[in-house]
């Protein structure tokens, strides 16, 4: 999974997206905050949701407790 590396750690892309989700955000907002194309955000967020690192909330996306823990493990505290 591009959001996780072989060691089970989140990737740079996942870190950027999860950080952008520290406040509830729509997919276009996440794309704008991260400067990543929207198509790629859609694919990556789908994977983050499937992995339980992010969740959909009223058509926006938020980081979950699991996502925040993974982010903290990678050295980023929200």
């Amino acid at each position: 999974m591009p959001c996780m590396n072989n060691n089970g750690e989140i990737t740079e892309m996942a870190r950027k997206i999860l950080t952008a989700m520290s406040e509830s955000a729509s997919l276009p907002e996440i794309a704008a905050k991260t400067d990543v194309p929207l198509y790629r955000i859609r694919g990556a967020v789908r994977e983050l949701v499937e992995a339980g690192l992010a969740a959909e909330q009223d058509q926006n996306y938020v980081i979950t407790e699991i996502g925040a823990a993974a982010l903290k493990k990678s050295g980023i505290s929200l």
């Binding site: 999974m1 591009p2 959001c3 929207l38 198509y39 790629r40 859609r42 694919g43 990556a44 789908r46 994977e47």
Partner: peptide, 9 residues
Amino acid sequence: HGTLRLEDF
């Protein structure tokens, strides 16, 4: 760029 669907575009 990871798993993509046409609908992602």
